Simulated scan of single mutants.
Amino acid sequence: MARAFALLILSCLIAAPAGAVAGPDGFEDIARLESRVVAALDADVATPGGPLTHLDRRLKLAACPKPVTIDPPALGALPLRCEPLGWRIRVPLMRVPGAQPAPGTPAMAAAQPATPAAPPLIRRGDPVELRATSAGFTVSTAAIAQEDGRAGGKVRVKTDARGPVVIGDVVDTGIVRVASF
């Protein structure tokens, strides 16, 4: 009897890896994930600097075997990711009144005085090389620009006519870089 109980305890420990935050249904515990987001931002839901709304409780994310990584806010959202499983979500943030918009956002561009525009390095319909670099290696593929792009700006590209739109940074003539893949 004691041996069967010990085997049951051992099998539970193996089935639930350290750091996993699974709900009763085996998916990521969204309420606990939301509380981590609120703690990381030090702002409650629907308050300036905090998440815009509550995380959707219908969201079914596989339980991450390690703690979910909370990246710094970028482009008005807080990225959350589970590296071992490869899922990631972005939590929209409520803007802080009177705060300076982040560089590169449309609000920041509107706040700056007009300067003469540099000619685009990439034109809509141009073939481009889409690059992603990580940990000492680079992956690249062919894509088609969906809009004009200037050096240092963002541009939408598609790798396939039916594929999703990818947003990347214009590096040089015909070269677009994505932050991650």
Rank of each mutant, 00 (worst) to 15 (best):
G86R: 08
I167T: 15
D25H: 07
V128Y: 06
A109W: 05
S134W: 01
L59E: 11
L130A: 03
L78W: 12
G152D: 08
A142Y: 03
I70V: 09
A111R: 13
P48F: 14
T47R: 15
M94R: 15
A151L: 08
R36V: 01
A74G: 06
V155C: 02
G104F: 15
T47Q: 13
R123G: 00
A6N: 02
K60P: 07
S134G: 04
A77V: 08
C64W: 00
T47H: 11
T115R: 12
P84Q: 14
A102P: 06
P79S: 05
V176H: 03
I122C: 06
A132Q: 09
G163D: 11
A142P: 04
G163Y: 13
G98E: 10
R57I: 04
L33G: 07
P164W: 10
T47A: 11
F27S: 03
A46D: 12
L61Q: 04
G152C: 02
I9A: 15
D160N: 14
A22V: 03
D44I: 00
Q146L: 11
F5S: 00
S11Q: 09
P101S: 05
G168Q: 05
V38P: 07
I167K: 14
E28F: 04
A111F: 04
V96L: 09
A2K: 13
P84H: 12
D71N: 14
L121T: 01
A62E: 12
A43K: 02
T53V: 00
A20Q: 13
V170Y: 04
